[in-house]
């Protein structure tokens, strides 16, 4: 009897190791893969309303780890020169027409799209969420991990994320974002359309549950890794034109 009890204890303690990675490990590994330190990316964003393309944006994205990201709008002319800067948890927008830098909230919409500023400017999930592996399930014909990510504090935009990650190569597939009340709010599909990231998703499709027939698609069209940017690139004071 004693032996059976010891075997059971050993089995339960070793189960996560025997069965594979924990939820925390999976999320961390996916974050590591998706994080692009010292990268210069060209991104197209398309905003669809009533299933029709309403706006197209082109942006240049400079990133230095997860903490420093600068997005500069190249197109349309109306938004040209507009910049979004994120340094740690602080975010600002620079409006060239008025030559002013304004502090923004992570929850606000990113240039009228279905993405919030946090969706675009915060890359790693492991900082704000604790992850739990719910199990494995088929996702569009591929065996995937299904994870539950719970926000570490109420300050985080989404209280819960249900996350699907392809098991064989830890490629993220889908995220469902939930509010504190447990309502599903947004869905993000991550797709691989080109080989720009060597098999990692280059297209993000965000749809909002509150509004039907609306979505925003972000597509990486250019990518230069291993770039080094001068420190002033990510300084708030560098955003503004000198008078």
């Amino acid at each position: 009897m004693k032996k059976v009890f010891v075997y059971l204890c050993v089995f339960f303690l070793a189960a996560p190791v025997l069965m594979g990675m924990t939820g925390e490990e999976i999320v961390r590994k996916v974050d590591d893969k998706m994080e692009r330190t010292g990268a210069l990316s060209k991104v197209d964003m398309k905003v669809f309303r009533k299933d029709k393309l309403r706006k197209t944006y082109r942006m240049l994205m400079r990133s230095q780890g997860d903490e420093k990201i600068l997005v500069e709008f190249l197109y349309p002319p109306r938004n040209k020169g507009e910049k979004f800067l994120k340094v740690k948890e602080h975010m600002w927008i620079y409006r060239p027409k008025i030559n002013k830098v304004i502090r923004i909230s992570g929850r606000s919409s990113f240039s009228g799209s279905d993405f919030s500023n946090t969706d675009i400017l915060a890359v790693r999930l492991d900082k704000d969420y604790t992850a739990r592996l719910l199990g494995e399930e088929d996702f569009n014909g591929e065996l995937s991990y299904k994870l539950e990510l719970l926000a570490k504090s109420e300050e985080v935009t989404y209280a819960k994320i249900i996350y699907w990650v392809r098991k064989k190569d830890l490629v993220p597939l889908k995220r469902d974002f939930y509010t504190l009340s447990g309502h599903l709010l947004k869905t993000l599909l991550l797709e691989v359309r080109t080989e720009i990231f060597d098999g990692l998703p280059d297209t993000l499709i965000m749809s909002n549950i509150l509004e039907k027939n609306k979505k925003s698609v972000m597509h990486f069209v250019g990518y230069k890794p291993n770039q080094s940017f001068p420190a002033k690139t990510f300084r708030k004071n560098s955003l503004q034109r000198k008078r």
Partner: peptide, 16 residues
């Protein structure tokens, strides 16, 4: 109707 709001601390919350 669904009502969505940002809480005092910053997270998103919803009520039907």
């Amino acid at each position: 109707v669904m009502v969505l709001a940002q809480t005092l601390k910053g997270g998103l919350n919803m009520v039907e």
